[in-house]
Design a protein around this nucleic acid. Sequence first.
DNA 1: CCCGGCCCCTGACAAATGTCATGGCGGGAA
DNA 2: TTCCCGCCATGACATTTGTCAGGGGCCGGG
Lengths: 210, 210
Amino acid sequence: MSDQSAPIRLLLADDQALVRGALAALLSLEPDLTVVAEVGRGDEVVPTALRCTPDVALLDVEMPGLDGIAAAAALRVALPTCRVLVVTTFGRPGYLRRAMEAGANGFVVKDTPARQLADAVRRVHAGLRVVDPTLAAETLATGASPLTERETDVLRAARGGGAVADLARVLHLSEGTVRNHLSAAIGKTGARNRAAAVRIAEQNGWLLGE
Amino acid sequence: MSDQSAPIRLLLADDQALVRGALAALLSLEPDLTVVAEVGRGDEVVPTALRCTPDVALLDVEMPGLDGIAAAAALRVALPTCRVLVVTTFGRPGYLRRAMEAGANGFVVKDTPARQLADAVRRVHAGLRVVDPTLAAETLATGASPLTERETDVLRAARGGGAVADLARVLHLSEGTVRNHLSAAIGKTGARNRAAAVRIAEQNGWLLGE
DNA sequence: CCCGGCCCCTGACAAATGTCATGGCGGGAA
DNA sequence: TTCCCGCCATGACATTTGTCAGGGGCCGGG
């Protein structure tokens, strides 16, 4: 397709070097695609993109430095001509929502067939939106996070498995306040446990952002 | 290398279709390697291998049906001529240990550079062992799991975040017994929490096997 | 044979956790 | 402005959790 025009320039961002390289190999098989840059950290996306001016950036969500959603948002303002395709391991409903709000043009889960990736890239480059339909439905069903900002903070801090006293110290809050927020989060998630609440919130992608 | 002899036949097992396909593309670039089969589930490894008779099998650890370690062990007896290279996302010390005990010939983490993968495959095919040196050291340091079988069971069941009563029901144990096992596990892991104990055990790869 | 390890259970206790009622503070919507 | 609503905080309470000290039964090695 369109072999006569200039190839689509790609930037790959994934923290696992092996899959990064493998994706590069896969996409390089297509004559109309070229990988012009690869990075392994979220905070390298914008600097590298400014240097290499890719047409499309493929961003993983789970990355050190800066998560893929935040990187997408930053890239949006730094290089508006560059389309963003988020490629992630987990089909967390919240991820899709956040990615779209951050201005991503497409969202692909890593267990879609390999052949479809190149098409997704072309679609995104053409200005179309690409979204996994199953995931889209699930996202609509799950809805946005019911958690308040502090509740999210507390839940995030609780992931490590620390006691209330620890969380209070880290968050500069009273122990009672922490317990209140936790209780609220437990109620909203429908869990009966702090641990279960963390798990549920995580699965829904409500705990993004460090 | 050795373009004149028959190419090395490969089987790929990874639950994420995209990385599976990408790895296939990457390895197919090498003239002396051929991908003869791809599967997305652990329990498909042996049947497919018997049909396709690969020389080397690349197995992910996290897979539905059967984890990569168990698949490696099964493959070992079903098709002894086939070498096994475990390729995994997480450098859990316990994974490496278990993989070696299961008869794997090599162990590669997914954030090693892409170029090294083909070499690893060739080394394994030549009968050599391939192991990430950093991870090997860490494995030696961490040692085998100190957890007893029941302690492991209880900890596994506790991942969901259920209360003691729930675990007791699932495991057909008294609540007191569950608490005792949990307490022991907490002590051995050095945690001060059930949740933290689960986290630590998981990170060390002590919770494998459904 | 006896000892030690693992397993299962009991009962009791201290500590952590989850819930509730209550109240003050601030900002945004009606 | 008034009235929510989120946020922070207290204190009190019931429940859950983690710990400890027991007690049995089953093995396998010294």
